[in-house]
């Protein structure tokens, strides 16, 4: 078990290096700092001096990989690759284009992101599993049929529609909760209610349908017939036998996204003006602030790898057959 975790952590290193190389290539080789400067300063009427100044201010005036003019270790460290990419490994993100410290900003914004993502995740899981169980219990009836039709219809609706429609109806027409914004403390509930609700509703269609398929697959297995042969009621079969087995793919599928909850939701946060990491990312994309995007890419990969590891570990908890070696 321990050996397994250590091996997985070691395996994360080449992956993170790969991620870093990829982003480095995208950001500094495909588009050179000169391109970026020209982009930021406006394409026409740009003097070389202005470009130089822009690059110097942001530390893009160094060589990419090897600095021949520097001394000693500086040959390696005083390069763009080292300063902009390698430092990410120690979670040193540097500064955004507006001069703010990215690390500090991330720590500040994590809270609001989690405040939406965690309740939405838990509530969503609960609601969809319940619906799926309901459909599985009433399988091959009209309830099941129309339930599936509803699911397909709901998953065909754009998430933008849920957000815009929900915001319009609940906030603007019914005036139930504020249309957007965020406040700390107990007050947050008012602001969080709608975004959480919308993210749950938007996910119902596809998840319910998927979980229903998992349940039906389990119901078709031999051990279910054995359980029925014992004289157990259909309820007991579903809850004692089927649910426990079906939870293995469902939970382990859900666990992988838990770490990514930190990243927040891009759409919801920006629509509702919640100062989380999702809206931070969107703002950075719109402002073309590469330093922030790069940092978020790195954090995202770290969290994804953590999610994979958590998934494997959660297998050992829910499935007695799995022993990690």
């Amino acid at each position: 078990m321990l050996a397994y975790i250590i091996r997985r952590l070691l395996y994360a290193i080449p992956i993170l290096i790969g991620v870093n190389l990829l982003t480095f290539t995208l950001f500094f080789v495909v588009n050179t700092p000169d391109d970026m400067a020209r982009m930021q300063l406006g394409i026409k009427r740009v003097t070389p001096e202005a470009i130089q100044k822009w690059k110097a201010e942001r530390g893009y005036d160094k060589p990419l990989l090897y600095n021949g003019t520097a001394e000693g270790a500086g040959k390696i460290t005083r390069t763009i690759f080292f300063e902009k990419s390698v430092k990410l490994f120690v979670f040193d993100f540097g500064r955004a284009d507006d001069g703010r410290d990215i690390g500090h900003e991330i720590r500040m914004r994590m809270g609001p992101s989690l405040a939406i993502a965690v309740p939405a995740f838990i509530l969503g899981l609960f609601v969809t599993i319940s619906f799926a169980l309901l459909l599985a219990f009433f399988r091959a009836t009209y309830l099941d049929f129309w339930g599936v039709v509803m699911c397909v219809a709901m998953m065909s609706i754009s998430s933008l529609f849920y957000i815009i429609g929900g915001q319009y109806l609940v906030s603007k027409v019914w005036h139930l909760v504020p249309i957007s914004g965020y406040a700390g403390g107990l007050d947050a509930g008012r602001f969080l209610l709608l975004p959480v609700l919308i993210s749950v509703v938007a996910g119902i269609g596809s998840s319910t349908r998927w979980y229903r398929t998992i349940f039906l697959e389990e119901i078709g297995k031999d051990y279910v017939r054995t359980a029925r042969a014992k004289g157990l009621s259909e309820m007991a079969v579903l809850f004692r036998h089927v649910l426990k087995n079906a939870m293995i793919p469902i939970l382990t599928g859900a666990v992988v996204v838990i770490p990514l909850l930190f990243m927040g939701s891009l759409l919801i946060e920006s629509f509702f003006g919640i100062p989380g990491l999702g809206s931070y990312t969107i703002d950075a994309i719109n402002a073309q602030d590469f330093a922030v995007v790069r940092s978020m890419v790195f954090i995202g990969s770290v969290l994804y790898i953590a999610g994979l590891l958590l998934t494997d570990l959660s297998y050992t908890l829910v499935d007695p057959r799995v022993r990690l070696q």
């Binding site: 992956i15 790969g18 991620v19 990829l22 982003t23 995208l26 950001f27 495909v30 588009n31 391109d35 970026m36 020209r38 982009m39 394409i43 990514l260 990243m263 891009l266 990312t281 994309i285 073309q288 590469f290 995007v293 790069r294 978020m296 890419v297 995202g300 990969s301 994804y304 790898i305």
Partner: peptide, 26 residues
Amino acid sequence: YTTLNSIPSVLLIAASVLMVQVAIDT
């Protein structure tokens, strides 16, 4: 594919599209 997968896809798309955008604009 693990490496590609580990980058949140929206961010990878964002980064790539921004790059393409810069390339086209310049």
